[in-house]
Design a protein around this nucleic acid. Sequence first.
RNA 1: GGAGAAUUGGCAGAGUGGUCGAAUGCGGCAGUCUUGAAAACUGUUGAGGGUCACACCUCCGGGGGUUCGAAUCCCUCAUUCUCCGCCA
Length: 423
Amino acid sequence: MLQLQAIRDSKNDFITALKKRNIDGTPLLEKAIELDDKRRETQTQLDKTLAESNALSKEIGMLFKSGKAQEANVLKEKTGVLKEESKVLNDALATVAEELQTVLYQIPNIPHNSVPAGNTDEDNEEVFSEGDIPELVSNAMPHWELAKKYDIIDFELGVKITGAGFPVYKGKGARLQRALIAYFLDKNTEAGYTEIQVPHLVNEASGYGTGQLPDKEGQMYHVGEDDLYLIPTAEIPVTNLFRGEILKEEQFPICYTAYTPCFRREAGSYGAHVRGLNRLHQFDKVEIVRVEHPSKSFEALDGMVEHVKNILRELKLPYRVLRLCGGDLGFTSSLTYDFEVFSTAQDRWLEISSVSNFEAYQTNRLKLRYKDENGKSQLAHTLNGSSLALPRVLAGILENYQVEDGIEIPEVLIPYCGFSKID
RNA sequence: GGAGAAUUGGCAGAGUGGUCGAAUGCGGCAGUCUUGAAAACUGUUGAGGGUCACACCUCCGGGGGUUCGAAUCCCUCAUUCUCCGCCA
């Protein structure tokens, strides 16, 4: 959520920046300012009424104490009017505040200067690429065929017990998955991230805190009986650990990593691109989350990008890094780098990580602040990234590492797997 | 799931209808003293709105109510603790 003061100060810059998202921010920003004016005006009136009423109450108290009950009763009648007034004003204030909130929820984050304009993923800007695209055997297969051939992932079985998009991993497939999780967590821990385990269900307030609610309500599984949401990403529970906190500057940087399953309804997805592991309702992910001083957040973002590069380099997967264009940028993000692994067998790039700086957009909702050197509360910055999303890394490994008689295991994973080949 | 108790500032802990945004202690910060540190002493120390700055307003788990006036009374929800039951 944008800060009103920032909107007031930089309205025109924001409008220009929002054009990169193909959004005309003018009506919403102006509406926000207008409602804020109204809110302040109403608040001031209410405050005045309350002040008057408070003064009277005090006076009444004094009169009663000194035994002048009659005079007190005269004053009492006066307060009735004020009470009515303040009730009306209070309702008005609540209404305006809610309207303002609704408007603010509709405004996405302001894209960073470096974000290219554009509509679709076609307009994303490739900023880095590395790794050799392997030459595969002539009868190379996509991962869903490999999975069947070596009996390591069973999609039909998942359909039987749950539905489409809930695969069952078997034998070496399951072990490879577990190995990846352990490997990622180890890499992240080495890099200074503290490993934590968090709940996989969150309440409504957490959903609002990181921005999944109210706009992406339909993307999350909701447990109606208890009014809880299955997390679509560890970002929600991990970032919300700090909801409402006021940090000390010396606590920065805060770096956490967590493995969780992720649950996504993926309503509206279809077609060949959702085959196999490409798009699932439940998948595993290891996430990194940082809470940073505003002056350090972009430096931190670069650091996270380097960190993920490092992992992919070790896995020897061919990948590229994209700077997302305005149209492809997530609602709450200011700058996002996507990582994609090339799958030779599918002849396409698979998104395996997304690393973002949200600046103060989430922390404004979360009320996550720190005390600056003058002792004033300031909003912190939050960042997160996947390191990494399991299914597509798995797909990338299966497809890129296939040989005539099986699938080789990347060297760094062999100690984690306990085997060097799936066959 | 049943019965009882509790929820106050960073922490501990007073406060049971009026001058309480809240005693006191600890912690934090600043200063005095000291070569330096500790101790001691002095001052300061919740958040948000509002203002040029004050004033002023809101917040004592959340929400609602009673009252001229609520941290204090009532209702409700949540959470925590103790006992019982059940259980990986």
